[in-house]
C-alpha cells in the first residue's frame, strides 16, 4: 500500500486551474522529489496532502485514509505523523528559537522547559546549528539560519513523513549539502517517507529515489533519479538543463 496516494487531484484559484489531475504514489521509506517551474503548483500539491488546502476534486490518502474533507480531530491524528518545512520557513516570530523547534511537542505551552531546550539543541545540531541561538528570535537570524531552524522544527517530533518545500533554497552550496545529507540520512537510516520540492538539481540527484515533474497542473514525467538527465522527455530536459528555449515557454 502506498504511504501517500494522490489520485486526480484538482485545484483552481479563481479561474486559474493550478492542479489539473495530479496522480502520485509514494511508498513508505521512499524519497520523492517534485520539480517544476515557479508557480506550477508544487507547494499547493503538498498543502493538499497535509490538508491545508482542500482540493476541488480527487483524493488524497495517507496510510490509506482519505485526508480531503477530514475533520479537525482526524486531521490532527494524521498530522502527528507528518512534519512540514514551509518554503518561507514560517517560524513564529513571537517565540524564541527553542520554543519554535519544540512547538509540536509542547503545542505552544511552556512545559518542561529544560527538557525542551535539550531537544531543541539536539535538533539544531542535526541541521548544523548550535545552542548559541536557542534564545534568539527568528528575526535575529539570517535567512539561511531561519530555514534550518524551520527544518529542525519539522524533524523534532520524529515524524514518519516529511514534506520539504525548497529546503536548500537560499543556502550556500556547503550548507545545502549538510541539508542534503540530513535528508538522505532521514530516509536511509530512519526510514522516513519524504517529499521534497526543489529547484536545486544537485540536491535532487542526491536525495531523491524518484523524481516527478509537475507541469501545467499534472505530473508529466516521473522516474528514478538516474534517468533525470536522460529522461527522453523534452520538458524535463529543458528544465534540468535550465535552457530558455524549448517546449516550456
Amino acid at each position: 500500500m502506498s504511504k501517500i496516494l494522490l489520485s486526480n487531484v484538482a485545484k483552481r484559484f479563481g479561474d486559474k486551474a493550478v492542479l489539473d489531475g495530479v496522480n502520485l504514489s509514494v511508498d513508505a521509506g521512499e524519497s520523492v522529489t517534485i520539480i517544476g517551474q515557479s508557480g506550477s503548483g508544487k507547494s499547493v500539491t503538498i498543502k493538499c496532502i497535509i490538508g491545508l488546502i482542500r482540493p476541488d476534486s480527487g483524493s488524497v490518502r495517507i496510510d490509506g485514509e482519505e485526508v480531503t474533507g477530514m475533520g479537525d480531530r482526524d486531521l490532527n491524528r494524521i498530522r502527528s505523523k507528518v512534519g512540514m518545512l514551509f518554503q518561507g520557513g514560517a517560524l513564529f516570530d513571537s517565540l524564541p528559537v527553542w520554543r519554535n523547534v519544540t512547538f509540536a511537542l509542547t503545542q505552544g505551552k511552556v512545559i518542561a522547559a529544560k527538557e525542551m531546550r535539550r531537544i531543541a539543541e539536539e535538533n539544531l545540531e542535526r541541521v548544523g546549528l548550535d545552542r548559541t541561538i536557542l534564545d534568539l528570535r527568528p528575526s535575529e537570524l539570517s535567512g539561511g539560519m531561519q530555514k534550518r531552524v524551520a527544518l529542525a522544527r519539522a524533524i523534532a517530533p520524529k515524524p514518519e513523513i516529511i514534506f520539504f518545500d525548497e529546503p536548500t533554497t537560499g543556502l550556500d552550496p556547503i550548507r545545502a549539502d549538510v541539508i542534503n545529507d540530513l535528508i538522505v540520512s532521514l530516509t536511509e537510516d530512519i526510514g522516513i517517507t519524504a517529499i521534497t520540492i526543489t529547484h536545486d538539481m544537485a540536491s535532487a540527484r542526491k536525495i531523491a529515489h524518484r523524481v516527478a515533474m509537475l507541469y501545467e497542473g499534472r505530473i508529466i514525467w516521473e522516474g528514478p533519479r538516474e534517468r533525470l538527465y536522460d529522461s527522453g522527455n523534452p520538458y524535463v530536459d529543458q528544465f534540468v538543463q535550465g535552457r530558455a528555449e524549448g517546449p516550456i515557454r
Partner: peptide, 9 residues
C-alpha cells in the same frame, strides 16, 4: 505561520 501552527496540531 498560521498554516505552520495548524500542521503542528
Amino acid at each position: 505561520q498560521l498554516d505552520a501552527m495548524a500542521t503542528l496540531r
